[in-house]
Design a protein around this nucleic acid. Structure first.
Length: 301
DNA sequence: GCGTCCAGGTCTACC
DNA sequence: GGTAGACCTGGACGC
């Protein structure tokens, strides 16, 4: 066993970040509730796969626990640290967001709780594929699709651990396989087209995280991927660190009207007007608003 | 066990 | 620009 220590930024809350949305329950993430830790499979630049366990220490740091493996060198350790920092959003600046939250009595809980960081995958490709798998279906079906992608197209590490597939692994399959084996239904051609474009180098999803494009233009670029509409694009932008879009889905819509309108439903324009004053942070205020109740429990799901 | 209906976002064709 | 219908699956429900 080998342990890397990773210092955490100010206002960082480990469990709120892990449970910021549903990604922690989709492989290759896995919450190990009995040990109060997160497991994540990481594919290193040389192709080597490592099962990392991330645990919170008592004060201001995390432990990344790796298997005893002499082939994991210093460069690999740096890559592992970088991956975890990326997933947990260590390099993003939230002080402006917290200042905005403190201005509103009903949102002062946010900086106190250290909420706001949304868990993401090491790669944009994984985030985008997973987001397509959340569209127009139940969460149970999303879990089935992502589970199948990993077990049938990922790299097997042990009996129950599989990596998320690389674009090439999906690209070399056909639509019928994705429909029948992955159970992705009509999303199959979307996943196939995206994977083939990424594998061929026609589209560079990873550059979205450092894009200098104005958010509206980046939104349109994300929307240009087949299968990604306003909901999916809005939520992908949140994982890219841009919170200007709400990314409303049926669950959030229902929750908003329960919280703010006594359950009386209305149009999405009402929701958009409600969060307009929060400017470029409105998507994050919206998400934290509708999920605030999750944190009444240590393990919300 | 089987058939029917519904919910869930996005795309395409049409107005 | 707005709208209707198709896409596909799992789950709920009735028989």
């Amino acid at each position: 066993m080998r342990v890397l220590i990773l210092p955490t930024p100010r206002h960082f809350n480990f469990w709120r970040t892990i449970y910021s949305h549903g990604w922690c329950s989709l492989p290759p993430f896995r919450v190990e509730k009995e040990h109060i830790r997160l497991r994540r499979l990481l594919t290193l630049p040389g192709g080597h796969v490592v099962a990392a366990i991330i645990r919170e220490n008592e004060k201001g740091s995390l432990s990344i626990i790796l298997p005893a493996d002499k082939t994991i060198g210093k460069k690999d350790c740096d890559a592992i640290r970088a991956s975890i920092r990326t997933c947990l959003r260590f390099d993003e600046e939230y002080s402006e967001f917290y200042t905005e939250a403190r201005r509103h009595k009903e949102y002062r809980w946010i900086p106190k709780a250290g909420a706001g960081r949304l868990l993401r995958a090491p790669t944009v490709f994984e985030d985008v594929v997973k987001m397509i798998c959340t569209t127009n279906c139940s969460w149970a079906l999303t879990e089935i699709m992502v589970g199948n992608l990993c077990t049938k197209l990922g790299v097997q590490v042990n009996e129950s651990l599989f990596t998320f597939p690389i674009p090439e692994a999906i690209a070399e399959k056909n639509e019928s396989f994705l429909r029948k084996e992955i159970r992705s239904g009509y999303r199959a051609p979307y996943l196939l087209e995206l994977s083939r474009r990424v594998a061929k180098g026609d589209v560079h999803l990873e550059s979205w995280r450092s894009s200098s494009l104005p958010t509206e233009e980046l939104f349109e670029e994300v929307r240009s991927v087949k299968g990604i509409g306003p909901y999916a694009a809005g939520n992908i932008l949140k994982l890219l660190g841009r919170y200007d879009y709400l990314g409303i889905d049926s669950w959030c819509r229902k929750k908003f009207f329960e919280i703010h309108k006594n359950g009386r439903t209305s149009s999405d324009k009402v929701i958009e007007r409600f969060y307009e004053p929060f400017g470029k942070w409105r998507g994050l205020f919206f998400w934290l608003d509708v999920t605030k109740h999750w944190y009444d429990k240590k393990f919300p799901f």
